[in-house]
């Protein structure tokens, strides 16, 4: 479990995160949503440790990240998997070498064992026989899946995904969403996904945190988000006509049931 207590971050006198407190449970896909510039990327960077908040606590299963020394932080990072917006695969390595990379750096396995583990991770994300290709030779969706495979090679306890659907077609987006959800449940990982894709929210939102102008504005599940009365949240999710229609249908159904 990752628990945030009154996390605040300031840039040049501008408060980007305003005393955010929430918790992200294992086995759940936790989504952080919000408009561009709302502070969700800064929040994720603070949770990962790429930025340091001025105030607050970030507890990884009771271990406060902000009180850790360099060695403890290093050890914690080995429990973290990260899926970047543009996959961030290493261009100079093949797909298999990319997936093997964390094992090469942090495990004492022999080459054969490392290769077997990497291949099993590639199988898990439904990629077969592409280990010899370079990242430039595969599609955007495949890159995301390779990045997921790389993120799970060390069996992480925490998985962070930054805009996992950006640049993908709707069908591939759903495949990636489902894959993240399955892996989260299978390995009982605490997964935090940064997104503004409402399809993702409705597919994966076990726990949704809505950030508006650096403040935690709403927290709940995908079942409650459509019927929420929070104005700022409604302005955000019903910006598209599609979701306005979804809301009307949902309300209609509730009235029929009532």
């Amino acid at each position: 479990m990752i628990e945030l207590k009154s996390v605040s971050k300031t840039f040049d006198d501008k408060e980007v995160l305003k005393s955010i407190s929430t918790s992200f449970l294992p086995g759940q896909t936790n989504l952080v949503i919000g408009q561009s510039g709302s502070g969700k990327t800064v929040l994720m960077k603070c949770i990962i440790g790429l930025m340091t908040p001025e105030k607050g606590e970030i507890n990884y299963d009771g271990r406060n990240l902000l009180n850790m020394n360099r060695q403890e932080t290093k050890m914690l990072r080995r429990e973290i998997g990260m899926l970047f917006q543009n996959s961030a695969l290493f261009d100079s390595l093949t797909v298999l070498e990319n997936v093997m990379f964390p094992l090469n750096m942090f495990s004492n396995m022999r080459y054969k064992e490392r290769a077997e583990r990497a291949l099993s991770c590639l199988d898990r994300v439904n990629l077969h026989d592409i280990g010899h290709l370079s990242p430039a030779e595969i599609s955007g969706g495949m890159k995301k899946r390779v990045a997921i495979a790389r993120a799970i090679t060390l069996k992480p306890k925490y998985l962070f995904c930054d805009e996992p659907n950006s640049g993908l077609d709707p069908k591939t987006s759903i495949v990636i969403d489902q894959l993240i959800k399955e892996i989260t449940q299978e390995y009982n990982i605490t997964t935090i996904i940064n997104t503004h894709d409402m399809n993702s929210v409705m597919e994966n939102g076990d726990n949704i945190v809505f950030i508006h102008e650096g403040k935690l504005e709403w927290n709940g599940s995908k079942d409650k988000i459509i019927t929420s009365s929070n104005k700022k949240l409604n302005d955000f999710i019903f910006a598209s006509n599609l979701f306005k229609k979804v809301k009307n249908i949902e309300i209609g159904l509730m009235e029929d049931e009532g």
Binding site: F84, F90, F101, F160
Partner: peptide, 12 residues
């Protein structure tokens, strides 16, 4: 392309 961030997050 965030490859350096990826290394940092892995603890490298």
């Amino acid at each position: 392309t965030e490859q350096i961030d990826a290394l940092d997050i892995m603890g490298v």
